[in-house]
Write a protein that binds this DNA or RNA. Structure first.
Lengths: 218, 218
DNA sequence: GTCTATAACCAGATAGAC
DNA sequence: GTCTATCTGGTTATAGAC
């Protein structure tokens, strides 16, 4: 059961956006297994999920998992890597879409927070299942995670040099921004009052106050 | 192995502060099992922890766990309840220690963030293992969690009425403050540059900017 | 209250037919 | 590539001696 019941009792495909992240995956059954893995790992945790849980969701036998992935942990890595790439692309696209200063940092906060809301389950796997990644594959993810930080840091630095932002500690402020956006994956529910976009705008407004800038006018 | 190696190679008891939370527990072996449970659940997750892991840490057989707790999930509930109570007491004590307005909300942020850093492992269990709590015992915890929110909300409201704070959305601002403090449990390391108290002060400063107040002078 | 031993079950992963 | 069947080892929890 992956759907949610909408107000009109029609099941809504909540994972529709997450699906796009995995478009590049072939063959289709591997993609289906990955998408089932996202839902299971997010809802039950990596250790709470069995290969049978994943296989059942796509009407395959447990053995079929091992045709496409060498192990459960390797399936998790595939999910986590594509998830990290998607988040990073979203963040860097937002950075590139606006001129340096208030607009750029606002767009980044907004996009990064909204990504965690829109891709709630994927984000939960990305942010909370790092410990289950096979150790030899962790450096690849850690490099991408370090880029989350440096992109925020350098944009804040830029804004300070242009006299548009202030922060007592650039690395600390970047870390706090990142932290607030990441925690969205823990609590966000599509049943709540805010859409992912609305949450993104709200967080950008709040955090721009923190960075001593005038609230965004958008 | 619960110790960390200090700069001078002496093992430091990192869990010393967490121990105080469980002082009320009797008999001593039950307390020892709870403390071992905190470390295991935080480091391996509830599903990743076996009753053997817990028992081995205190040199007991797996069966000894069931003399003191009816199940592994019930041991988790005991931990989570005492953890919630400790966090709530810390928050309410901070609220009571300062006059309404900037000082009070600053003290609350500082204390709540520092609690999550100081009691890192306990906080991880409290904030990330709610799904493994037996369903019939969840309402008790949810009542306490709701109080986290209302205490922050009413304090912000107070500050706004006194013209000391501003916020576009009180519930949203309270939620963001809570969220940032909770996420400390995910990333904080005692090896990092900031002590729990220093982190608390830093977060209070950042968030008071967000609430449109002058930075705390403390 | 603690132990050893074990029941009853479930996990990840593989073998080999189709 | 997918299945059924199964291996091997680990899981929670209990039984009964001390």
């Amino acid at each position: 059961m992956s759907g949610l019941i909408g107000a009109d009792d029609r099941p809504m495909r909540e994972g529709a956006d997450e699906a796009a992240v995995f478009d590049c995956l072939e063959p289709p059954k591997a993609r289906a297994l990955v998408m089932a893995g996202v839902e299971c790992f997010a809802d039950l945790g990596f250790d709470g999920t069995t290969t049978r849980d994943i296989a059942e969701r796509v009407d395959l036998s447990p053995a079929a998992v091992y045709v496409h992935f060498p192990s459960k942990a390797d399936l998790l890595f595939t999910i986590s890597k594509l998830g990290h790439e998607s988040a990073l692309q979203t963040l860097e696209a937002a950075a590139a879409s606006e001129p340096p200063g208030t607009e750029r940092i606002g767009a980044m906060i907004s996009a990064f927070a909204a990504w965690h809301a829109r891709n709630r389950r994927l984000a939960k796997v990305v942010q909370y299942e790092l410990d289950a990644i096979p150790p030899e594959r962790r450096p690849e993810l850690n490099r991408m995670r370090r880029r989350f930080e440096t992109v925020f840091e350098s944009t804040i630095e830029e804004g300070i040099e242009a006299n548009l932002l202030t922060a007592p500690d650039v690395a600390g402020a970047a870390m706090a921004i990142l932290s607030l956006c990441i925690d969205v994956a823990r609590w966000y529910s599509p049943q709540g009052p805010r859409s992912p976009e609305s949450l993104g705008r709200f967080y950008a407004d709040l955090l721009l106050r923190m960075l001593n800038a005038a609230p965004a006018t958008a």
